[in-house]
């Protein structure tokens, strides 16, 4: 499995709530439609994005860098993570994560790395190269390096399978 991810960074601050990732009015609890939800990611955070479908996605960000308690609001739903993935996000780095967001991200196959100090070390639009296994973070724009917590083998196997459910499917098939 290739554990290197390289991409342009979108910066958020501390305590970004699930509703800031995507407003609740943009989802339904009848289904989870990542493509539809992805049109509204960060619409209240990014100036000019409110009610403009797909604006955030069109900016071409692949990595989100955040401060403390990313994805808080204690919401036991996976929609915000699915929406981020739909909008082209392949990795989130944060000083710390709210429990649901961390768990939901791994369950949906989105790598999330805890990296104390990351918010101060990165500016918007910097390009990062990250090894999600070792946790080595290199800011290709500034040359600065940081150390994140690498993902465990189990977490990597979830990521590699594309999430918990594809992982279960694979496990079930391998035992047949």
């Amino acid at each position: 499995m290739n554990t290197k991810i390289e991409g342009k960074c979108y910066l958020c601050g501390d305590a970004v709530t699930v509703y800031q990732i995507i407003p609740e009015k943009r989802w339904t609890m009848n289904r989870m439609d990542a493509a539809e939800m992805s049109r509204w990611v960060f619409e209240t955070m990014e100036p000019g994005a409110e009610d403009v479908p797909g604006l955030f996605r069109s900016l071409g960000y692949e990595i989100v860098v955040a401060g403390r308690d990313f994805g808080c609001g204690s919401k036991s739903v996976e929609h915000p993570v699915a929406a981020l993935q739909g909008a082209g996000i392949r990795l989130v780095l944060a000083d710390s994560f709210s429990r649901y967001s961390y768990r939901n991200a791994l369950n949906l196959g989105l790598p999330v790395l805890t990296c104390p100090g990351i918010l101060e070390a990165v500016r918007r639009d910097d390009v990062l190269s990250v090894d999600i296994r070792t946790g080595a973070v290199r800011n290709l724009t500034t040359g600065r390096t940081l150390q994140a917590e690498g993902l465990s083998d189990f977490a990597l196997s979830l990521i590699s399978a594309g999430g918990l459910l594809p992982y279960l499917e694979k496990e079930a098939n391998s035992h047949e």
Binding site: S74, S76, V77, R103, N107, L164
Partner: peptide
Amino acid sequence: GTDSHATMYAGLGAFSCGITASDAVS
């Protein structure tokens, strides 16, 4: 439980926490 306040069952001496849809499917 598939809801944040599933932490409540700890009051009975159980280990409990909230989960989301994929966990419930698992």
